[in-house]
Write a protein that binds this DNA or RNA. Structure first.
Lengths: 196, 196, 196, 196
DNA sequence: CATGAATGAGACTTCATTCAT
DNA sequence: TATGAATGAAGTCTCATTCAT
């Protein structure tokens, strides 16, 4: 039976993903050796090269997997707020941002991992995500209906994303004196101001 | 004469700085070998270890040196605008930011180098800079005289710095479809909105 | 077949042992480079570190291997003398000592290697040797049956071993004017006197 | 005045001797770097090479200096015992040996230093010592007057010296279960037996 | 005499990748 | 598919020694 083999294959891949994620976030990508990954995953070294080109290929795959899940959950959070009556655009954007902030508060190491390994390539792959595309479209449309052109709307989104990301990273990962919780009100005020 | 030795020493350090900067920005810190640095600097390998603990010590020293010079020049740019009559606070902050943006447009690789090697440690060292402290104080005072408390003012500054940094990095280094020049108007509008 | 791999492994280890022994005894441990060892063994440098922690780990392993073999052969020599009727205790000890002396006469460099790298740790490992423990027990028992307590017997053995070792080393390795052959009668007389 | 310069020179040599001795005995010859020696001595690195060929030249010089002083003191101890009436030959030899044992009990590290760096070369230099030659001559003469030939006497001395040295080293430096104090009675009994 | 910055050979070690089994 | 022993290029860093000052 073929499925047994395929299942076995998936198990090994998952083990490698999990072991690598644990190591990447705890000791960093640079300090993680292929040897450590396969040892922790309980597979042979050759097996690693059966499924991944190299360490950085695996880093990318892990980040995309994690980011996709995060985006879907954040959109879900906005949808639920809308169900209970929240229809203010600004607030919806802030709800979305807040989901990210709260998530990264609990997953500092993942935040660091993503930030240090960010590339446009990766960004694009995340954007290929169906639902994400829908959310972006909604954002743009809001502006269009208020007399702002698409290009400008895209740029404002870009600024907001960059700002939220950087403030999160600087507050959470770098140990700056400004904790993310104390930053939140000003951060969300800034989002509202940029959108307004 | 002792000065001959001292002078020689400075020359070697400068050569190492220059050679390393060239390599770090062109092929990246990771891909730069100590061997390459000393070969390009025209000094012996031991000389490197006479002045630097390791590769990352040199990275830090180069970043601090470059950042300090940049900050001083940006402040100088603001001072000159003030000489010719510009006294609007928002505009002064934007002038400062614009100096950074323009500089990094011409020094993309330095921007990448700084971003990838950022740490709170390094940030603090930059802040020990005398003039920088003065500029920060001026920023805070402006808010104080307009009824905003110091803490809030500091957080707004933190957001602006994070935002400008991230937009620069994303626009310039990651090859996003939003070029920094097309982003500038929206970026400066955002600064003004956050300050207002 | 798995045995092919296992066999190959033993071959590599043996090659490394042999090459290292040759170098250690001919040019000294200090002057022997890992590079030389692996080159002479015909294996890659990484293979060395697959089996040994560092150079000194290999030195220890070689010494233990050689010493164990030597002890077994010396005991064998005594056993054979006993077979042909020698049952005088003193003579048995001298037979044992003589085997060592003759062996080291032919293996000066090994004697030097052992002496320069002696440690209590190593001594203990040699003593873990089964047969050696038996020989020591026999020695002690002889004294016990002649009215000497165990402690004293152990100390006499310790003195004899130290004395024979030192005289061998000084005569053979240091190039003293007293050749080991001319020393033998006096050395064995001393053993007999200490035992008596 | 020439003497001032010469004095200065001696001071530096002494400082180097002292610093090196401290390092050799505390961390070992192998782990002691020229850099450490000159830093601890408070002189420049070049100065080291003004007075010593290399590290091992200095080791030899230190050992000879220490050994010469020790021998003179041991002979002095025998002379004093003779003054108070001790004229038994065996006891005089044991007195001499005991002085060594007691000294090395308090100077374990020096014992290790000497043992690990022993060479016939060094041994000879120690023997060039005037008083030592006299003591040896006395030893030989005792045997001659009791019907033993010079050669045999020399060999017995050689055995005794080797034995005492090895037992000291093994008991004191290697941390064998036989402490030197508990070994002494048996060791001196052995000396007496060999002489008898 | 004294200095100590500079040297550079080379020691030791790591680890991504391959490939015979 | 899976393994893991073997590889060896590439790396970091040390330290005895020299020599211009």
């Amino acid at each position: 039976m073929k499925s047994k083999i395929l299942e076995n294959k998936s198990i090994k891949i998952k083990k490698l993903h999990d072991a690598a994620y644990e190591l990447f976030t705890s000791i960093g990508v640079h300090n993680t050796k292929i040897d450590d990954i396969v040892k922790n995953a309980g597979v042979a070294k050759g097996t690693f090269y059966l499924y991944f080109k190299d360490k950085y290929d695996l880093v990318d795959k892990i980040i995309i997997k994690k980011a996709t899940a995060l985006i879907q959950n954040a959109l879900q959070a906005v949808a639920e707020k809308q169900k209970v009556g929240q229809d203010d655009f600004s607030n919806n954007v802030i709800t979305f941002a807040d989901y990210f902030v709260e998530f990264f508060k609990d997953n500092q190491k993942l935040l660091a991992l993503i930030y240090k390994n960010l590339s446009w390539d990766l960004y694009q792959k995340a954007m290929e995500n169906q639902e994400m595309g829908g959310a972006v479209k909604t954002f743009i449309q809001h502006f269009n209906t208020h007399g702002t052109d698409t290009e400008t709307a895209e740029r404002r989104l870009f600024i907001i994303v960059s700002m939220v990301g950087a403030v999160c990273y600087n507050s959470i990962v770098l140990e700056t004196p400004f904790g993310i919780d104390s930053m939140k009100p000003e951060l969300y005020r800034s989002i509202a101001r940029i959108i307004a």
